[in-house]
């Protein structure tokens, strides 16, 4: 477990919803702090997720699944997610 509470929160939500075979989450907030677009205070995170649930799904469907798993956190703790969503058959 990371000692970053927001990373842990994202990990828990994605693990519960999508049972990923691999999941990497990086807190990228420091690179965006202070820019005009980030004024709301939510964090930026990079998520690389591989899950069987993505098999046969389009990119937009996969991103929607990730956003759905995050639920209300997208309005509060998270300003932006950079998502790389792959199915196990595509993971390189």
């Amino acid at each position: 477990m990371s000692d970053n509470p927001r990373v842990n929160m994202i990990r828990e939500k994605l693990t519960a919803a999508l049972s990923p075979v691999s999941l990497d989450i990086e807190d990228d907030s420091h690179r965006h702090a202070g820019h005009a677009g980030a004024a709301g205070g939510g964090g930026h995170f990079n998520v690389a997720i591989t899950a069987a649930a993505f098999e046969g799904k389009s990119l937009i469907e996969r991103h929607r699944m990730v956003y759905a798993a995050m639920g209300d956190a997208m309005q509060t703790d998270i300003h932006a997610l950079s998502i790389r969503a792959t199915a196990p058959s595509e993971a390189g």
Binding site: H32, G37, A80
Partner: peptide, 13 residues
């Protein structure tokens, strides 16, 4: 987007 194509206010945009 946040900002304009000429003067974007966010890296993603």
């Amino acid at each position: 987007m946040k900002g304009t194509p000429q003067l974007p206010q966010c890296g993603f945009s």
